[in-house]
């Protein structure tokens, strides 16, 4: 699915990622954990193609294409989806109109015809049920006036609608109460197939109680310093990030 080799990235001349390696195969769920400032959100932004970041070294192969050579929208159309930590509001643009535009751009990219209004609406009904999203929310403006939990559920709803190959969930658990967390996790689990993959970026272990990762990686100071199975998350929770910090040579 995706192979990241020796990735170095900096913002305003300050290096953040310092030689990151990661391979994710189809059907897998990877969790990336780490303390604040380790570079977790930078990784998500770099994968999605945010322009503020400068890639100084390394390469990323995404299903056979050189990801770094693609624009933000091309990456999305190739099947890369980022569930944002802070989804923005777009006043006056209905969620439906927004998603239909996005879906049709992706379909056009694949050489498919635009979706009919009827098919689209039945897809909306099916997928909004998945994250228990009130169907009224889908006709409101994108994220405008949504609660924190609704915004996160809306991200997963969009993910369900666009059916990406690789989903990156950036701190999707932040600001969620336990019920919303369960709903979001449930949605993600149902979307899992052996054709797609998920990268979960999180600070806390609790989301991983609901979405069981195949692999857990610890990101610290711009590098993955430890990898393991799901038990690594529990160990990390117990011992705290100082355990990593103290065991990492500077």
């Amino acid at each position: 699915m995706i192979t990241i080799k020796d990735l170095h990235a900096s913002i305003e001349g300050k290096p953040i990622l310092k030689g990151l390696n990661l391979t994710v195969k189809a059907g897998e769920v990877h969790a990336i954990m780490g303390p604040n400032g380790a570079g977790k959100s930078t990784l998500a932004s770099v994968l999605a193609g945010r322009e503020e970041y400068e890639i100084t070294q390394g390469d990323i192969n995404f299903n056979g294409v050189d990801l770094l050579s693609l624009s933000v929208e091309e990456r999305a159309r190739e099947g890369l989806f980022l569930a944002f930590q802070y989804p923005v509001e777009i006043p006056g643009v209905s969620n439906i109109n927004f998603l239909r535009t996005a879906l049709n751009e992706i379909r056009e990219h694949k050489g498919e015809k635009g979706i009919s209004a009827k098919d689209f609406m039945s897809l909306v009904r099916e997928k909004s049920a998945l994250v228990e999203l009130d169907s009224k929310l889908s006709s409101r403006s994108v994220n405008e006036g949504f609660s924190g939990g609704e915004k996160k559920r809306n991200e997963i709803f969009q993910m369900a609608m666009l059916n990406p190959k690789l989903s990156i969930l950036d701190e999707t658990d932040s600001g969620l109460d336990i019920d919303a967390l369960r709903i979001v996790a449930n949605g993600v689990n149902q979307l899992k197939t052996d054709q797609n993959a998920t990268i979960i970026i999180t600070h806390y272990q609790r989301l991983l109680d609901y979405i069981i990762p195949d692999f857990v990686h610890v990101l610290y100071d711009g590098k993955i310093v430890k990898s393991g199975g799901k038990e690594l998350a529990l160990e990390l929770e117990e011992k705290g990030y100082d355990w990593i910090k103290n065991n990492t040579p500077n």
């Binding site: 933000v72 990456r75 999305a76 944002f84 923005v88 777009i90 006056g92 666009l162």
Partner: peptide
């Protein structure tokens, strides 16, 4: 917002269409 544009583009929407969406949303009333 650069953030609004980035959000649209991350969903596969071209910059041109994204500006169209955002501006038309702004003028909707």
């Amino acid at each position: 917002g650069e953030d609004q544009l980035f959000y649209c583009k991350q969903r596969g929407i071209s910059e041109e269409k994204a500006i169209g969406l955002i501006v038309n949303g702004y003028c909707k009333e």
